[in-house]
Design a binder for these strands. Structure first.
Lengths: 165, 165
DNA sequence: TGATATATGTCATAATATAACATATCAACC
DNA sequence: GGTTGATATGTTATATTATGACATATATCA
């Protein structure tokens, strides 16, 4: 299934500097944390930033292959493992796809609005682990380490198509 | 990957009547809604209730095959599509697995606590679409139709193992 | 420099999921 | 009761997503 072709969120934006800014930010964080931001990892991150949409691992791999950076699935998956582990990139489980984090700061609990029509994905910040869920977890004795919320529906661009008059 | 072998939630419970109760409840809802609760669909639902844990589609298919109810993947996937579509069963995207709904009433927004050690899954009720996320969605013009929250961490049974001493 | 950990290249295959199409069953109406 | 259209099932084949395993290379640091 081809994933959507619409930019991040559901509105267009000035895309010029956000790629280099995000790369620089992550580069700095890797240095600070003693992590290796290797060429493949960096390139995968850049690809996701440039596309600004959710990409499947094999779409990313195709790009890497075209650029001579690796041709086998583990190359892409390893880079994605690294990037998702450190929250530079998020996996959209609903789509089996990956998207660059829109909030280039600390570890957080992302919430995604996923359009079922065009597969556009918007990322929102939440405090999910601080509300009712945290109460339930602590009452149960469960320790939440990571959480993700995925909401499916219709984005502003696709609502008109679904309600034709 | 074998999924966990621990019962629902993280505490054991009297399991005797919950299967028949849930089946009866869903059966009634199907009749009321004009849905066909066919033998395969019913059996898949029962299997999930009996196991009371997240099962992969192919684990379910193995069971169906043993019972002569179908041997090809589409059989299992179609039944699961039906059951998830109507919220009788939820898909745990994180695990590519399915679990019978613990709240046999209306359509809702489930939240799952998934143990990363034993893969046990507990389902909690939430009001996710009524809080901050709903504000973001409506401000963006996004219509949320379904949402799911998946939290990963350690369940009460596995915390001791991870903190040895 | 040597030892250890970390990362990459590659082959093979596992695990998850769907397309397509023929057949069967159901629901509802005449 | 038979016809019709919708819904569900059986089956083959294949697509898509992901990982195991092992050799090689590169980085880190004592």
């Amino acid at each position: 299934m081809p994933l959507n072709s619409d930019p991040i969120g559901f509105a267009h934006h000035d895309h010029a500097s956000c790629v280099t800014d995000a790369v620089a930010s992550v580069e700095a964080r890797c240095i600070a944390a003693g992590l290796q931001f290797t060429p493949v990892r960096k390139r995968v991150f850049e690809i996701l930033l440039e596309e600004h949409r959710a990409l499947g691992a094999y779409e990313i791999l195709d790009r890497l292959r075209d650029e001579g950076l690796g041709s086998q699935p583990p190359v892409a998956y390893r880079a994605l493992d690294f990037l998702t582990k450190h929250d530079f990139v998020h996996k959209i489980e609903r789509l089996n796809a990956f998207i660059a984090c829109a909030h280039p700061h600390e570890v957080h609990t992302p919430a995604f609005l996923i359009c079922r029509d065009c597969n556009a994905v918007a990322e929102a910040e939440t405090n999910l682990t601080q509300g009712r869920l945290a109460q339930i977890a602590s009452a149960t004795g469960f320790i939440i380490e990571r959480a993700i919320l995925e909401a499916e529906g219709l984005c502003p661009n696709c609502i008109p198509k679904s309600e034709p008059a």
